[in-house]
Design a protein around this nucleic acid. Structure first.
Lengths: 241, 241
DNA sequence: CATTCTCACTGGTACGTACCGGATCGTACC
DNA sequence: GGTACGATCCGGTACGTACCAGTGAGAATG
């Protein structure tokens, strides 16, 4: 039945099961019992269990002692992914808008230069924007992009997604980012911009976005603590000592 | 050798291995061979392999065909993972300690009951702890665990990792969690506990930890904004609209 | 002395058996 | 008609055997 090849049987069986649960079965449906599968595919139960446990481990199947093994209902998408402010707000049910505060070429500071892998003092576009949701301030953002990568960024309409401009005009696709977040008091400057008290808490994000060719963007955002929250899923990872 | 006993042997063996790789072995060191472990603990090789593969799955061990099984070198990157406070602080170079403020069985609130998949009013252990790093307050934590799962939690030493207790005593392994975070002002209660101003910003985490059998824990933590930050990597999700 | 070969040992694969406790359902008994 | 029992399914646990393909150290060879 199996043995098309050099692949271990439990790997082949795994693939076969995956195919059936994707094509023929609905979430919540039961797959054949382990003992049934042993005769169907003419393998031992240990092999069947190896295949199944691999799929259980990836969250595709769930075992229920005494009943059987069922196809897992697909999980709601993890909320933590790389999205532009615009996408993010729409997904949360808000109407996003943007106020461009400034856009100019400046010399890269030390931290920015290091983050972007360029020299300190190299020219970078500095874009400062206020982000609104339903016409109320949600976040303040300052972003830096190397001029060498996006020479004419200032000519574009910066009230929308800069990621879209990068992609359409410069063929640069930001595929992943690393960000650090912490909590601060708004303070003089941002209290005014965000229309909150000076002692109001804000969530600060320091993000470096990268394309396949390396870092492209650094952004420091300050979100109003009273209007923003972030959800994420955690797995027990390799470094979960 | 094993058989303390209500727990399956491979779970006990898993715990035993985890202890040795945490206490006696350096990253990169090899653990005894599978056949060696069968005689040491007087179990079958299948049992040994079950214990090992569970640890491999969580990234604590790595198997090398023809050579052996080695303790995984912890990676410094990927800062966003499921880790206990103790683990987290050690990784950040701090010396963690804990002050247990209270531990009692209470009736589950509505939000907690919903998160844990139990009935409102069902008995849950409520553990309130102050977490210190280098003897200074870092975070305040309140956790809830269903009494049905951990009947005698109050008898344990709660100044360390509760995850470790869950695993060692109850055979419950928290493998993943969903958490939401936002920024707040410390306020009366927490300002005093965390030794900061009432207007000082804190990062709040509302986390639900789950084992393979479902939710086990809800924890609400408040971290001092001036002492804590969170790093994470973002990928462009499947629907990168 | 350098190379090659052998061989013990590793994890990986695959088979078999056996028994347990939980779930389900039909059936026999009040 | 409702309850209790038992047969029978399920996955979970645990044991055993056997062989394979890499690895690596030491022996045999050049």
């Amino acid at each position: 039945m199996l043995n098309d090849s050099l692949l271990p049987k439990h790997v082949q069986l795994r693939a076969a099961l995956l195919k059936t649960i994707e094509e023929d079965l609905q979430p919540g449906a039961m797959i054949p019992s382990e003992r049934d599968l042993t005769t169907r595919y003419d393998v031992s139960r240990a092999t069947v269990r190896a295949a199944i446990s691999s799929l259980v481990n990836e969250g595709r199947l769930t075992t229920v002692p005494g009943r059987g093994t069922v196809v897992t209902r697909p999980r709601v998408e993890s909320n933590l992914h790389l999205a532009s402010f615009t996408q993010d707000m729409r997904q949360r049910g808000h109407r996003p808008s943007t106020e461009v505060l400034s856009a100019a070429v400046v010399e890269a500071g030390e931290a920015t230069a290091k983050a972007l892998g360029i020299g300190a003092g190299d020219p970078v576009w500095e874009i400062e924007r206020l982000r609104l949701a339903d016409d109320e301030p949600m976040a303040h953002e300052v972003s830096w992009y190397p001029e060498a990568i996006v020479p004419a960024l200032g000519d574009e309409d910066l009230s929308g997604s800069i990621y879209a401009i990068l992609e359409a005009t410069y063929g640069v696709v930001i595929t992943d980012a690393q960000q650090t977040t912490w909590a601060e008091q708004a303070g003089h400057t941002y209290a005014h911009l965000l229309e909150v008290a000076e002692t109001a808490p804000v969530m600060v994000f320091d993000r470096v976005g990268s394309s396949n060719d390396g870092p492209v963007e650094q952004t420091i955002s300050r979100y109003r603590g009273d209007r923003y929250q972030l959800s994420m899923s955690l797995q027990r990872g390799p470094s979960a000592r």
